[in-house]
Design a protein around this nucleic acid. Structure first.
Lengths: 377, 377
DNA sequence: CTGTTAGCGCATTCAT
DNA sequence: ATGAATGCGCTAACAG
């Protein structure tokens, strides 16, 4: 009953015969074209690839046959000869956080612009899953791999190295100027934000992390850089620093409740930092549930920007990262390496910056007296 | 200077020799394993695929060689023989709207669960681009294709049909129970929403569409169903209905300004409907710029839900669609068709529903007197 | 139980 | 300027 194509007849000519010859597997091959044009397959190949000598007349005939039969040279067969698949792999942690969409968009656009096609896979934060994916990408003989995340360490990285498959960025723990640049930017923005919170008089700051998958080595080195800088700057200023991990896999409302109870807990913070764009919305809901106003009662900052941060009232202060641009550059770099060209730039132009909007303000003079903890209606 | 792997040596044994033999293209082949294990390639194949008879002792030897050499059978070579690529293509309109992320996630998860890998490509709303993609997917010999969008009509669809490549969902204009189900659900929710707006006393409603790419045949049939229902219900009730298209490719703030000026224009609406989750944020910014309060001055509804709709104050009324779930089911259906299995279900369980939250309220009694159109500070 | 052989579809010598 | 032959890496059919 369910039609997955069943209700479509193959295209037929006016005489009712199929326009496309029915080969066993349904695909027109170079041999069909050769036969139709009355030449050898070698000539067809030459004609179609503009490679070697082919008489103008013959070439025209071949092209005609090819297009009439709807010949689509198998990229898979071609890649066997060419040792080139025109395919790259993209490994992302998951496909929930919009930041991954931005990243993927950069990869897809850069790849597409150069005739490459993208294979996506998600590691779900699991080193084993990641390893599995890497094996698959090797089996697919992707010409390169873009790492949106990397949790497997050296052991996983070697599966690519063993097969000489180019990778960007070179995974952090394994040394890399690129990664250092990223961390540098990220740290600078984080530092700026932390100092601002201190200036605003906040005496306790809480980092809300979460949406972690079990089995992940957490925090990842990316997050670690944030955490450490925050800890460092705040500690130096004598400001209390706390971290709240939200259970992952629970519903949004439950997660928000977790936040809410953390908020109403004993030593509540006056400033909250969301570790990513996803928890930011959760945090806001939680804060709302607890009956707190932004920025009068509490200040809020989130990692990751989006139109929603601007649409929200008050507008939200964030640490913004041009994830899309980075992915674009990163992928361009990868493709250049694959094609044996010089790198398009000497490095990725990472830039993270603290965008202060209206969700950050002076710490409340007197800590709000904790009236009966907000009950949900 | 930029390291794309340059700083990593290939793994070496304690004797300093490469653990992995260096074949011309860098990949270990079945022949290497055969030689190493002292058997024929056929035996290796049988051992690795658990296919046919292989002596236990020999099998152990082969497995050892295989894993020691890091042999990863080329999926590309296998697919040549098997006439099966274990690959499906996913065509999405673009990778900006988060709804596409949800859709992709469903596809990726369903595919991954059955050992398939996903090739993503974006049509950018262009029929030509879409056609190009389809050709590429054919060339890649993907076992099937999931259409997140489809703008090319019959002509493009035939690219797939000619090559007997299964597709879900069967494109709308070409008849399809699935699509009818989708439209039905979507229409029902839209109708419910429209009627609610009428009940609330609104006398003019505006649909804000946009983020369209030039060259797109707009509105697509999906959007058309919304538009028509809206037009129908509102018209029947004598409520004015207007449509505003936001220019795409401009910055968020410019787009918001467009909305703002539309808002402050002569016959401003008291109810605004955002055609997708992306324009919803833009609409909110525009409304804010115009100095209007929700829901006192204007009511707002958006197509597409997300945590942000709940985090926003007031919480936003939306028409929610389980895009992820649909993609999951859709893909499962496709894979079943590919594998020659009976479909897992007799149809996709589409369910769109109007979730009324706090952004919709009674139309203001008296149309706000248009004080000097809000100037931006 | 194992090895030899024959393609899958294509690009590329090497002849002619 | 064109065709025949070879092989990319793998699996399946057929012989032993």
């Amino acid at each position: 009953m369910v039609a997955v194509m069943a209700d479509f007849d193959p295209p037929r000519g006016s005489d009712g015969r199929r326009l496309v010859p029915r080969r066993q597997n349904g695909f027109v091959t170079i041999r069909d074209v050769a036969a139709d044009a009355g030449v050898s397959i070698a000539t067809v190949s030459r004609a179609l690839n503009n490679n070697g000598y082919v008489a103008g007349e013959v070439k025209k005939r071949v092209l005609a046959s090819s297009s009439r039969l709807g010949f689509r040279p198998s990229e898979r067969a071609r890649s066997m000869r060419n040792l080139r698949t025109m395919t790259i792999g993209a490994i992302l942690p998951e496909l929930v956080n919009p930041v991954n969409l931005e990243f993927l968009r950069g990869i897809e656009e850069a790849a597409n612009a150069r005739g490459y096609v993208v294979l996506v896979a998600t590691s779900q934060g699991s080193p084993d899953k990641e390893r599995e994916i890497l094996h698959r990408l090797v089996a697919e003989r992707t010409d390169g791999v873009v790492l949106g995340t990397f949790v497997g360490g050296r052991r996983n990285f070697d599966v690519l190295a063993e097969h000489h498959i180019p990778v960007v960025p070179p995974p952090g723990p394994l040394s890399s100027a690129l990664n250092a640049a990223w961390t540098l930017e990220e740290s600078a923005a984080t530092r700026q934000m932390a100092e601002r919170l201190v200036d605003l008089g906040h005496r306790k700051v809480t980092l809300v992390s979460g949406h972690q998958t079990a089995g992940t080595r957490s925090p990842s080195y990316y997050r670690r850089s944030r955490y450490e800088v925050l800890r460092d700057v705040l500690g130096r200023a004598g400001v209390e620093f706390d971290v709240v991990m939200i259970t992952r896999g629970v519903s949004e409302t439950l997660a928000a409740d977790e936040v809410a109870s953390a908020v109403t807990a004993g030593s509540a913070s006056t400033a909250w930092v969301a570790a990513n764009h996803l928890v930011l919305s959760t945090l806001l809901i939680g804060l709302g549930t607890a009956g707190l106003n932004i920025p009068e009662d509490v200040s809020v900052v989130g990692y990751g920007d989006s139109p929603w941060a601007t649409a929200y009232r008050p507008t939200l202060s964030v640490i913004s990262h041009d994830t899309y641009g980075e992915a674009l550059e990163l992928t361009a770099m990868l493709l250049a390496a694959i094609d044996g060209e010089p790198p398009p730039s000497t490095g990725i132009n990472y830039k993270a910056r603290f965008v202060e909007r209206q969700s950050t303000g002076p710490a409340p003079i007197r800590r709000k007296s904790r009236r009966s903890s907000a009950h949900r209606p």
